[in-house]
Simulated assay, not measured.
Amino acid sequence: MTVIVRDLTPEVPADVEDFARVRHLALPYMLWTPDAVRHHLAHSHPDAHRRYLLAEEDGEVIGTAQVGLLHESPEPGQAHLNAYVHPGRTRRGAGDLLVRAAEEYLASLGATRLFAWVLDEPGNRAFAERHGYRGSRPAHFLRLDLAQTALPPLGTPPPGVELRTGADFADDPRPLFELDAETAQDEPGDIVTEFTDYEAWVEEHWKHPLLNLELTSVAVVDGRPASFSVAYTDDTGRYATAMTGTARAHRGRGLAKLAKNDSLHRARAAGSTEAFTGNDVGNGPMIAINKWFGYEICATEVRYVRELG
């Protein structure tokens, strides 16, 4: 049996569906759909040079890789490489071929430091270390059973605070862009993210097919978004928090908890049955909030890093 690596062709429906299927099987804690795959490829910033690879064995797609430059980081030369193999098709060489092809591509773009997420399991970590990667920060995936878990009661917003939805900003999302840009800079992790291109943010994030504006909650103070909880949903009843954050001037007031609770209640009312989120282990305040809601850790990933050259 022969394994080959090739580019995903967005115009071929089977390629897109196979990528989403294998990624879901390997990483069921994140929402992946064919539309999301197409969107990432079509609307990524040109400076990201994003590329999706497929590992194929005798016509069956058994592995995927998502690679590109981290163009939103102020430090040049950084790149991401995330490879996943169908859990029932491991030890066939697909992972080795995907990593080799991805590294060659990123090196050709001038990348000098590669970041990869690796599930915290002995075999996966050994694979990464064999390829010259060193472990860095862990992060948790968390799951909440929305159908069975009692959510905290909805609270009354403090004086001067109003709860709105993302849909209320459909005509002018720039205030949410500004809040997203500020909170993204403060997220703990190995990579600093700076959102500076509003139009690119609109194309890549605001127009994302999984973004559910009706379930995205925004706490507004003096007419400006002060905190938000961004909701993604698919058509299977799965809901994911893509980002929860509060502007620096309004932290310590419980606004993140208020916004997320509002979003979760409306998600359950809309038929969502599972909620997912992710937290860097250094993000103690958000981990505490999620545990307050009843989220439980369902898996852990470790960020691995490799220096090139």
Rank of each mutant, 00 (worst) to 15 (best):
S108T: 08
R134T: 12
H131Q: 09
G135Q: 14
A139W: 13
G93W: 01
L119C: 06
S108D: 13
G95L: 06
L146A: 13
A139K: 00
A147T: 09
P138V: 06
Y105M: 09
G110V: 11
T149K: 10
A94R: 08
Y105H: 14
F115S: 10
H131K: 13
R134W: 07
A147M: 02
L114E: 03
A126K: 09
R137G: 01
L114Y: 13
R143E: 14
F127H: 08
L109H: 12
A101D: 13
Q148T: 14
R91K: 15
V99Y: 10
H131V: 04
E121I: 08
S108N: 02
P122L: 13
A107R: 15
G110L: 08
G88S: 07
Y105A: 02
E121V: 11
D120G: 02
T112I: 11
W117H: 13
A116T: 14
H140W: 15
A101V: 15
Q148M: 09
D145N: 13
V85S: 02
L114S: 08
G135R: 14
H131R: 15
S108Q: 09
A150E: 15
F127S: 07
Y105K: 02
R100Q: 11
A116S: 15
Y133T: 04
R89C: 10
R91N: 14
R89P: 00
T149S: 12
V118L: 05
G95A: 04
L106S: 03
A107Y: 05
N124P: 00
R143P: 00
R134L: 12
G110R: 07
L109N: 11
S136V: 04
A111D: 11
S108G: 15
R134K: 12
E129W: 07
G110E: 10
P138H: 06
G95H: 06
E103H: 08
R91Q: 11
P87L: 09
Y133S: 01
E121P: 01
L114D: 03
P87Q: 05
G88M: 01
W117V: 00
Y105V: 04
L109D: 07
A111W: 04
L97M: 11
V85P: 01
R92Y: 12
A101L: 04
V85N: 03
R113Q: 15
G123T: 01
R100H: 11
G135D: 02
F115L: 15
F115P: 01
R113T: 15
T112K: 14
E129L: 02
E129Y: 10
Y105F: 15
L97I: 10
A111P: 08
R134Q: 11
V99H: 02
T90P: 02
A126Q: 07
W117F: 10
L144G: 06
T90S: 09
